[in-house]
Design a protein around this nucleic acid. Structure first.
Lengths: 198, 198
DNA sequence: AGACGATACGGAACATGGTTCCGTTTACCA
DNA sequence: TGGTAAACGGAACCATGTTCCGTATCGTCT
């Protein structure tokens, strides 16, 4: 058979070598820049780091969200895949949920500005929002459903809402030593438990 | 006695009449603009509404935060003053705390972009942050302390952290029907209660 | 190898919004 | 009424996102 690009049987007509090289260079430069200055780092800074013009960034990643997603895709996937594993290995569904959310929080608080970007209504972050939600809400929903079935959480909370709440609580974490996002998320998760009576 | 400005016995050397008029005009225009376009509304828009130049805005309110504080000062004061009243009138300290936080949330979710601004690290919002915190954290601390003394909340949560958490949860409220900030705040407050054992 | 079309590149140019600055106007007082 | 200091307006400046097009490069076909 003929040889294709890494992804088998793609219909897309193979990109030029310099284009593929630049894409990788850009990903590396962006990862560095995000780490150094947060995901809001000016486009020109990323371009300078990569040694390309800004036009090249926009050609490869039309919106900032595309770049952010590309940089963090692996970690998001890992988080998504950890959900079912935790459900299988934890003592209770509520414990699995709590641990999975810890994973998510750990991810968010170590990425400067990512939590902010996730909740931003700026059009440039639209697809970031969409990607995170598409990938993680179903995982969260399964955990939540298992916990609800076990009677360990109130049934009226939806996964979408919970994820956004957790994301919101992570905003500003690491910027202020008096604010511990993990503790508040813990409180929120604790609040999910049904009250004794009712 | 000699007649002074509205505020009695000020040392500041009375401002010119047009300046006082403009200040009021600006407050009205800003209130309108915030309502219509959120607290992020461009400075030029506010200036246009008020029929003044942008320089005039900066002279009266050097940072955006000063303007925001001036517009919402009354409501923040009212919220602060409601704290002790609720503590006196509620069945339990935890109930008072919950109701007071509801008040705060109601305030935040009806002001487009205010919750976002409150958590922003943008230098222009520095003093907004400071004002809200200075005024409301002590009130929250008293409620929290009363509840802790009554054994109704875990003692390790600080008022500052709780306020920031609640503020964070209000981000994006009203922009998405699937996200109900009030419900999540309710969960968080519920999570404050000590667990049965321990 | 050489030439040609498609693809990709770079960065100048434009749009938007915050901020500053200074020449002009206005209010106040003598 | 005239002088002075306060206040005003908005042009100009800066930072950043975004678009666009002349130029350079790649890959292929002959």
């Amino acid at each position: 058979m003929a040889h294709f690009d890494s992804a088998a049987g793609e219909s897309a007509p193979r990109k030029r070598a310099d284009a593929r090289r630049n894409e990788q260079t850009l990903l590396d430069a962006a990862a560095e820049a995000f780490l150094a200055s947060g995901v809001d780092v000016p486009v020109r800074d990323i371009a300078a780091r990569a040694g390309v013009g800004v036009g090249t960034i926009y050609r490869h990643f039309p919106t900032r969200a595309d770049l952010v997603v590309a940089v963090y895709r692996h970690q998001v996937e890992a988080c998504a895949e950890a959900g079912p594993a935790l459900l299988a290995s934890s003592a209770s569904p509520h414990a699995a949920l709590a641990r999975w959310i810890d994973l998510f929080v750990d991810f968010l608080v170590t990425k400067h500005g990512l939590a902010e970007a996730l909740q931003s209504d700026d059009a440039a972050f639209q697809s970031l929002h969409a990607y995170f939600l598409d990938r993680l809400v179903p995982v969260c929903a399964r955990l939540l459903e298992a916990a609800a079935t076990a009677g360990e959480v109130r049934p009226e909370v939806h996964a979408y809402e919970l994820m956004r709440g957790v994301g919101n609580l992570c905003i500003g974490a690491g910027r202020d030593p008096r604010y511990d996002a993990r503790r508040l998320v813990g409180l929120l998760v604790a609040g999910l438990r049904p009250t004794g009576e009712e």
